[in-house]
Design a protein around this nucleic acid. Sequence first.
DNA 1: GCACATACCTTGTTACGCAAGGTATGCGGT
DNA 2: ACCGCATACCTTGCGTAACAAGGTATGTGC
Lengths: 144, 144
Amino acid sequence: MLSMPRRVALPTNQPDDAEDPANQHGPDALARLRRELARGTAELAVLSVLTSGRRYGYELLKLLERTGAGVLEVKEGTLYPLLHRLEDAGQIAATWEVEGRARPRKYYDITPAGRAHLAVLRAEWTELVNAMHRLLDALDKVEK
Amino acid sequence: MLSMPRRVALPTNQPDDAEDPANQHGPDALARLRRELARGTAELAVLSVLTSGRRYGYELLKLLERTGAGVLEVKEGTLYPLLHRLEDAGQIAATWEVEGRARPRKYYDITPAGRAHLAVLRAEWTELVNAMHRLLDALDKVEK
DNA sequence: GCACATACCTTGTTACGCAAGGTATGCGGT
DNA sequence: ACCGCATACCTTGCGTAACAAGGTATGTGC
């Protein structure tokens, strides 16, 4: 314990309370915060949307952007690699459609494997939400 | 469109449905899935716990490990850097306590700035959960 | 002495999400 | 014809949080 302070109950970092709350919630900080919170939910969101029917990539982009005030929004750099990953894993199937269209589109369908995976994801998400709910709303009930 | 398939509505990846569901949910895959889903929630969880009273690092580790069947578990490599980040940001205060103990412990208290930040985090988390809830339970009601 | 628990620290790796860049075509206006 | 914008898809480098794994140190029981 050579590097340990010898003084008793001395705060190691005095926060400046009057300034930090204001500076921390500008547009950039809020965007980062949202990003981090929503991280990991893209897969669940995409598979969920696909259960109600096939969609092409750009359509998924637009749809997720509009869902829930944008909290589920993902960017192309996220969505397309994710779609490719899901396809490689056999959870979705992709088909190019060219006939009867002015331009081709790549449609995605969820597979039975994808539906099975989604069921697991849903269960895990529910657990997470319930656990967090317990923390946020009933902290004194958490066992020690 | 030189690289575009010329055939119509041809699946680009034929999944093997009988095998994928079984192989994807072994212990490692489930652990990865949980990790990704919970990603970004550590900060919310830690600040929430601290609102009901000061705690030292190891205690937080154990407590989160036990909460909700382990879905909120974080490892040291995650927790301590997070605690340091929160301290640097003025959201928590850290104090070493050595007197009257067999060994020193580093206690963490949430600051007023931390409480303000937590309120924002909670609001964003609630939005995310509601949005996802809408996707999962009422897909046909999502606007096109 | 040793093994394990308690308590904290740190770094390199992993993996996802974003920014930014790219390709291509269609459409409307000039 | 050109241009700007929309539609549609692709990809890579960067940033960041989480983990694995390594480390320090002390206390306890055998």
